[in-house]
């Protein structure tokens, strides 16, 4: 893939950083559109996956910026339908993970990503402190972060009756180890 992929070699492009970080070459995408055809949320995306790749293939700063700021990358469910069907075996969700990280790092993330991010951060916080996901804590933390205080207030009592809501967190023994694990990975950046 050396010919026609000049954009892979400009170190300041997003396509280059994707390749460096994930090993996935965007030049492999030949725009068949299968990823967007099978994507369960493509109709909700401002930019479906194949268009994201086309934009990145140009290697132009203004297109990179549009990709980093689009909402579509935040709607990827990581269902892997696209990568399973891709004739070039491009690992699309892996690229989406990386692009989202870059969007955050460069402060370009779409405003509607806020709630989704709030959820993931609340999720990870719960694990960092208890070792296991504490669902009640997760939802409470998400409500505070997203300010959607009334979301699902009717569901919680029903879940409690069915024995599905543990009111106390499950604490693992080695919580110090869990903190250390977070510090050595996500805490490094």
């Amino acid at each position: 893939m050396s010919s026609g992929s000049h954009h892979d070699h400009h170190e300041d492009t997003l396509a280059w950083r994707v390749q460096q970080a994930t090993g996935v070459k965007l030049a492999h995408c030949y725009q068949c559109g299968k990823c967007a055809a099978g994507c369960p949320v493509a109709d909700q995306m401002d930019m479906p996956p194949c268009q994201v790749f086309r934009m990145l293939q140009y290697g132009l700063p203004q297109y990179d910026k549009r990709v980093l700021g689009c909402e579509g990358i935040w709607l990827c469910l990581a269902c892997e339908t696209c990568s399973t069907r891709c004739p070039q075996e491009v690992e699309i969700p892996k690229i989406m993970d990386f692009i989202r990280g870059e969007a955050l790092r460069l402060n370009l993330a779409h405003p509607r990503s806020k709630d989704i991010l709030a959820f993931h951060r609340a999720f990870l916080d719960s694990i960092e402190y208890t070792g296991r996901l504490y669902e009640v804590g997760l939802v409470a933390d998400y409500k505070v972060r997203s300010r959607h205080f009334l979301k699902d207030v009717m569901l919680a009592p029903k879940m409690y009756i069915k024995g599905k809501l543990g009111l106390l967190p499950h604490l693992i023994k080695n919580r110090r180890g869990m903190k250390h694990l977070f510090k050595q990975t996500i805490g490094k950046g």
Binding site: H120, L124, R132
Partner: peptide, 25 residues
């Protein structure tokens, strides 16, 4: 014994290394 959360659908969104370290433990 003393298993932890695998990171599920959240860890890989925010940090690649974390998404590997949690299952590795």
């Amino acid at each position: 014994a003393d298993w932890n959360c695998c990171g599920a659908s959240s860890a890989h969104i925010l940090n690649h290394e974390l998404s590997i370290a949690l299952p590795a433990r």
